[in-house]
Simulated assay, not measured.
Amino acid sequence: MDMARVLPKDCMCKILSLTTPKDACRSSAVCLALKNSADSDETWEAFLPAELEHLVAQSSSTNLNSLAKKQLYLHLCDHPLLLAGNTMSFSLDKESGKKCYMIGARGLWILWSHVPKYWSYASIQESRFPEVAVLHQVWWFEVKGNFNTKLLSQRTTYDVLFVFQFGSEILGFADTSINFSLNESGIHKSEGQVALYPPIIGVKQRKDGWLEIKVGEFYTEDEEDGGSILEFKLWDFDDYNEKSGILVEGFEFRPKSPE
């Protein structure tokens, strides 16, 4: 028996909304009756965050309210919303629908960034943010920030990713270990070291052309817990080696991919 033809559309939409966005997309290819339910606003409304209207109101994006819910979902996967004065972005993980956030360079604390001789901010076409941080010369390298985890999806393991590029002249990063640490509400979570250059071990090329490297992970509890403040830091000043040539886009919080 073809259940897609027997069950009312609202019933099919309810069933599909309890699956995943990936399953809903697959279901739309099964038959026309199922496609109508799988592509409907009733189904895709469940995959969009409850606070989306508030987020859209904060951003400079226009005409999003005119999109069908499935189109809106897919748009948010590939076109992050800029928030908090263009210092933070919001998007959705395409397969799971989990929330993703990224704090841009202007939303971070960067040592000596107020001194043009050491750091400057520039507009880069490939970046989602209006400006990224460009390192000219420092001996103490330190980039850090904090984030409230209540903004993220509940009961989810997140990766913390440092997003960056290198310019044409690189100094002080070759075969050098950069320290990182992660603290949650004052409790130490993890620490370690990563090598940013050459970009071989652990460094991945992103679809947007930037590089990323994982510097930690954490688990989000239920919303009733009120979230926690996540503090993250990347630094190196033990050897006082001169450094230059890195471009910092920011830190991203993205659901951990299945192994």
Rank of each mutant, 00 (worst) to 15 (best):
I201E: 11
H75D: 08
Q125M: 12
I187M: 09
L81P: 00
N146Q: 13
V138N: 10
L82H: 01
W119E: 10
L171Q: 12
F141E: 01
I200Q: 01
L92Y: 09
G167V: 03
S96Y: 02
V134Q: 04
A195G: 12
F129V: 05
K99L: 09
S185W: 04
L83E: 03
C77H: 07
L81T: 05
G186M: 13
V163N: 10
F129E: 14
G97E: 00
P199N: 04
A195H: 03
L135Y: 04
F147Y: 08
V194H: 04
G97S: 02
L152H: 11
L72C: 03
W119A: 03
Y197R: 05
H188L: 05
D159Q: 13
P116H: 07
L92T: 11
Y158G: 10
F166D: 05
V194E: 01
L92W: 05
E142C: 14
F173K: 06
F164W: 03
S168A: 10
G186E: 02
D93E: 13
H114D: 02
G104Y: 08
R128Q: 13
G202Q: 07
Y121F: 15
L74E: 14
T156D: 13
Q165A: 13
V163P: 02
F164L: 08
S89T: 09
W140A: 07
R128I: 15
N146A: 15
Q154M: 07
A105N: 07
G202S: 07
A84D: 11
L135G: 04
S123A: 14
L196I: 06
D93K: 04
S168P: 01
A84G: 01
V194Q: 08
L92K: 05
K98H: 11
S91A: 13
V163A: 07
